[in-house]
Amino acid sequence: MQTTVLTDWQQFMALTTQLDGWAFRGQQNAQWHLESSLTRYMRDYVGDRLQWRQREERAIRVFRRKAHNFLAHPDLLKDDLRCLALMQHHGAPTRLLDFTKSPFVAAFFALERAIGDAAVYALNTPALWNSRALPKANPTLTRDVIDPRAHDNFERYFFSNTNEILWSGEPTEMDDRLVAQSGTFVVPGVIDKPLQAILEGYESHEELLHKIVLPERIRMDAMKWLYRMNITNASLFPGLDGLARSIAVELEIVWSGMVVPVAGSPN
Rank of each mutant, 00 (worst) to 15 (best):
V254A: 08
W255V: 08
F24A: 13
A222H: 01
T7D: 13
L86T: 14
A107F: 01
A222F: 00
F70L: 12
E200A: 07
F109Y: 11
M87G: 08
R177L: 07
L19E: 09
V260G: 00
F104S: 10
K136F: 05
K211G: 06
R228Y: 04
I115C: 01
D192E: 06
W129G: 00
P126L: 15
T3G: 03
K66C: 05
V249L: 15
A180T: 13
Q88D: 07
E170I: 09
D98F: 03
L34Q: 03
I231T: 02
V260R: 13
R65M: 14
L243G: 01
M174N: 10
K101M: 11
I60T: 04
F154W: 15
Q11V: 08
I247P: 01
M220E: 14
N124F: 02
R43W: 05
F159S: 04
P126G: 12
D176Y: 02
I218R: 06
D176G: 01
D147N: 15
L208I: 07
R82C: 09
L141V: 02
R217F: 05
W129K: 15
G239M: 07
M42D: 11
A114E: 02
P266G: 11
Q28G: 08
L226H: 05
R132N: 11
H89F: 06
R64I: 10
E207N: 11
G47F: 04
E170W: 02
L141H: 06
M258L: 08
S168I: 05
I146F: 07
F24Q: 13
L76W: 07
D241V: 08
L240P: 00
R49W: 04
K136D: 07
D8S: 12
V105T: 13
D241W: 03
A248I: 14
L251F: 15
D8C: 13
G239P: 00
F12P: 13
E57N: 00
V46A: 12
A137T: 05
L214I: 14
L214N: 13
V254Y: 04
L81D: 06
G201Q: 06
L209F: 04
E155L: 12
A72L: 12
D176H: 05
N230P: 00
W22N: 11
V62Q: 07
K136E: 10
T184F: 03
L128R: 07
V62P: 00
F109E: 05
R95M: 10
L77S: 05
Q196C: 01
N161E: 14
A127P: 00
V213T: 14
W167E: 00
L77T: 08
Q2Y: 01
D48N: 14
R132K: 15
L86P: 07
L15N: 04
V186H: 06
V179I: 15
A118R: 04
T142S: 12
